[in-house]
């Protein structure tokens, strides 16, 4: 190929790094939601779930941000994202949402850890030591639920932001797809919120397998999967067919649809009704499906 009669392939701006970053941010959001909501509205029987979620959130978001920074053309100027602000830019706003969320998830993770260690001590040691332990942590622990509560908002913010980041590109026919053709409602934020919650939840459950009976969570997960199936069908019906038949077709039909939705759905129906410990395969697939979804969306938007 030569420059006059036709030029070779172009590289695309956003590659795998960004896809993984968007995925991890989603997982973090979902995991935090799972943990904090459980923490807020549930007695301690699910402490293992709370811990799993509270630990996964900070780890995934921090790793995700790391990828984001490394993907920058100038990784060591990332701080300029905080210095120069453009309120017209979804990314600029997102940077702040995610920063706050990361901070909260770290704090929350720490508080949960502190609580659990305290409780572990409490189980082993004598009565007065117990008193000591509880009193010593009272001050900080008082913050836990408030942090969880505020975190809920920011985790939802983070999850939807990953969608807004792409849907804000009005010149991109795929990313900018509107919900049921309603210009005002972008599609991706909704899809990514649902996917984030389900993958986050799934990841959390993986971390909490050997816990008590997780049936209620699995039920929620099922609902989310069904929701996502509906959303994906809407997308399929509203967006240009080329997106699902082009070079990304396999990833979509195999990764997103089959592995990510259909199979887990049946498995979990089966799991909830009969089998107890079928958590791992289902959640595993849901997580993989979530990753495939981000890849599919990020690349498809740039290829066609």
């Amino acid at each position: 190929m030569d420059v006059t009669w036709g030029i070779g392939a172009e590289e695309i701006a956003w590659g795998g790094m960004i896809a993984i970053y968007l995925f991890l941010a989603g997982v973090a959001g979902g995991a935090f939601l799972t943990a904090s909501l459980t923490d807020l509205f549930n007695k301690n029987q699910y402490s293992k779930v709370i811990r799993s979620g509270a630990y996964i959130a900070p780890l995934t978001i921090i790793f995700g941000l790391l990828l984001l920074v490394v993907d920058l053309g100038k990784p060591f100027s990332f701080w300029k994202l905080l210095l120069y602000v453009n309120f017209k830019s979804v990314m600029s706003i997102g940077v702040f949402i995610i920063s706050v969320f990361s901070a909260l998830s770290v704090v929350y993770g720490f508080l949960v850890w502190q609580k659990s260690t305290a409780e572990r001590k409490l189980r082993q040691t004598s009565a007065n030591a117990q008193v000591a332990a509880t009193t010593s942590s009272k001050g900080l622990q008082a913050l836990r639920k408030p942090v969880a509560a505020v975190g809920v908002l920011f985790s939802i913010g983070t999850a939807t932001y990953t969608g807004f980041l792409l849907s804000a590109i009005t010149t991109n026919n795929f990313w900018h797809t509107a919900f049921l053709g309603l210009e005002s409602i972008p599609f991706l934020p909704i899809l990514f919120l649902v996917s984030a919650t389900s993958t986050g939840l799934a990841a959390t459950l993986i971390g909490a397998v050997k816990c008590c009976d997780l049936t209620p969570y699995k039920k929620i997960d099922m609902v989310l999967i069904i929701l996502e199936i509906i959303l994906i069908s809407i997308l399929y019906l509203t967006a240009d067919p080329i997106f699902f038949t082009g070079s990304m077709a396999t990833l979509f039909w195999l990764g997103v649809v089959t592995v990510g939705l259909i199979v887990p759905l049946f498995l979990s129906i089966y799991g909830v009704s009969k089998h107890k410990n079928i958590v791992l395969p289902v959640c595993g697939m849901v997580v993989i499906g979530g990753l495939c979804l981000r890849y599919f969306v990020v690349f498809t938007g740039q290829l066609f």
């Binding site: 701006a13 956003w14 993907d71 053309g73 100038k74 300029k80 590109i169 938007g301």
Partner: peptide
């Protein structure tokens, strides 16, 4: 000011932008 996030590259409908290998900026 540019951090090389490439957001603009995804936004440009004319493929007019690239990440300069040497500066890391758009």
């Amino acid at each position: 000011k540019c951090v090389g996030c490439k957001y603009c590259m995804t936004a440009c409908p004319y493929d007019a932008r690239f990440l300069n290998k040497e500066t890391g900026a758009a």
